[in-house]
């Protein structure tokens, strides 16, 4: 278990330094752990699990600058997953749902690799973003253009494209919360 954590941690640290392949592997592995973990915690509402896996992944990505490499990865990921889970339960059912047990053990104990369709389609939410956010994300993050190409296609400056991606992904998280 701690071996898995060390492995994940080094993938994240390399990812934060700009190694895209490591970062991709980190998010992929993390999604499996999150799915297994949240499935255990949200046994009564299994339909919500994949939505919450996606919401937590987006939060991990948007707040990745708050990870301190000297800190245990479990503590950081767990605090984010727990925050998002409580937020979901509050949104869902208010008080009664808060009685769901929130144990903080065994985040990396099991993994579930089967990526499922979420009930909420993030592609639809992306479509609701204003163009200054939507187009940079569409061209760079989904179609795979470089920032320079996306800037040419949209007529935006390169820094506006980068800012649009950054703020757009935060705006996407805000749309999910509504």
């Amino acid at each position: 278990m701690s071996g898995r954590e060390d492995e994940l941690r080094s993938l994240l640290v390399r990812g934060l330094a700009g190694d895209g392949a490591s970062y991709h592997a980190f998010l992929k592995d993390l999604s499996g752990f999150l799915r297994a973990y949240l499935r255990g915690r949200l046994a009564r509402i299994p339909d919500e699990v994949e939505d919450l896996v996606q919401e937590t992944l987006l939060a991990v990505h948007n707040q990745r600058h708050t990870y301190d490499p000297g800190q245990p990865l479990t503590a950081w990921v767990h605090a984010i997953a727990r925050y998002k889970m409580i937020d979901l339960l509050r949104r869902r059912a208010g008080r009664e749902a808060l009685h769901e047990p929130l144990d903080d053990d065994a985040l990396f104990a099991a993994s579930d690799e089967g990526a499922r369709e979420a009930r909420r389609d993030l592609a639809v939410l992306l479509g609701q973003l204003p163009d200054r956010h939507r187009l940079p994300i569409l061209h760079v993050k989904i179609e795979g253009m470089s920032v320079a190409e996306a800037a040419r296609v949209t007529g935006m400056s390169e820094s506006a494209v980068k800012v649009g991606i950054h703020r757009g992904l935060k705006a996407l998280a805000a749309l999910i919360r509504q």
Binding site: L57, A115, L122, K141
Partner: peptide, 23 residues
Amino acid sequence: MDTDQLVAMLARDAEPVTRGASG
């Protein structure tokens, strides 16, 4: 969008993070 697509989207062309930014 399934979760693998989301992971691919988030990882693609992700900006490196500058250390000490929150301080």
